[in-house]
Design a protein around this nucleic acid. Structure first.
Lengths: 146, 146
DNA sequence: GCATCAATTGCAAATCATTCGCAACTGAAT
DNA sequence: ATTCAGTTGCGAATGATTTGCAATTGATGC
């Protein structure tokens, strides 16, 4: 998540419970991992962080799908064909963007967002409702510039 | 392409020739199809437009890779795990965005772009070089709103 | 505590988009 | 017409993601 301090695990499990979902070993472990990582993680990366025998890759895929549906994680697409996920703070919608190094894949979180009034104009002009956007920046980070 | 009138096929084949690439049946057919479609097409869609026996899907994948490298087509990512391509006008870099209906997948081309000065500031603030962005809008089109 | 049952997991097989190896083929230049 | 690098068609390999299914396991009520 990007909004600041780590969420309590209790707050996370509470959200699951409210949906009559089970707090299982794999899910708790996944949430723990996400809670400790400030950057978007791929399912494989989460899998690698899991203690051996701590869960199956398919379980992670299913967990992320559920967590995304519940709005607890946000899916990001860096254009490399692999989904990445970040924990979303309660009350937050997790909307933000990233600046990704095309050499080392380093990620920086970006506060700036596409101007709302322009988005509204785009929506109005074309008659579209509920318009949102997906935006990511790419470049070469300081280290990779040599 | 988005910049206006259709390009002459001759101009396209000329660009290939300049790179000592062959103007083969499949490639000519693909360029013809792209020339007649104002919207981003998936490789499968291109394949479907091809006359039966007019080419293999793998050939299309290879052709799009080549055309992208030569800057003749631009790849777009609508976040559904399938690449889409649009012809790029000569002298143009093809940079533009889309507004995609999440119900019917209808696509509208958007002229607006992320403000350059903000992008520059993002690049400078983080020390990144050669910063670009990927931006697409999503919403529900007039027809799909009922 | 313990039974109960839906939710969940592990594992393997199935999908999907995309890439690759390779022998056969074909433009383009001579 | 000859020649050869660039291409194609196939089928097999990848890689990410999904799914079927039987076995397990939280959460709830007693």
């Amino acid at each position: 998540m990007h909004s600041g301090q780590k969420q309590e695990l209790a707050s996370l499990t509470g959200r699951l419970r409210r949906e009559s979902r089970k707090i299982t070993g794999p899910r708790a472990a996944i949430l723990e991992i996400l809670r400790h990582h400030p950057h978007p993680l791929t399912n494989k990366e989460i899998f690698a962080e899991l203690p051996k025998g701590g869960g199956d890759l398919a379980t992670i895929y299913r967990a992320m799908q559920l967590l995304e549906k519940l709005g607890m994680v946000k899916r990001f697409d860096f254009g490399d064909g692999t989904a990445r996920f970040e924990l979303v703070g309660e009350g937050d919608d997790g909307h933000h963007h990233h600046l990704i190094c095309t050499r080392c894949a380093g990620v920086v979180e970006i506060a700036e967002c596409f101007p709302e009034e322009i988005e509204r104009r785009i929506a109005r002009t074309n008659g579209y409702a509920g318009v949102t956007h997906r935006l990511e920046f790419f470049g070469i980070c300081p280290d990779c510039q040599q």
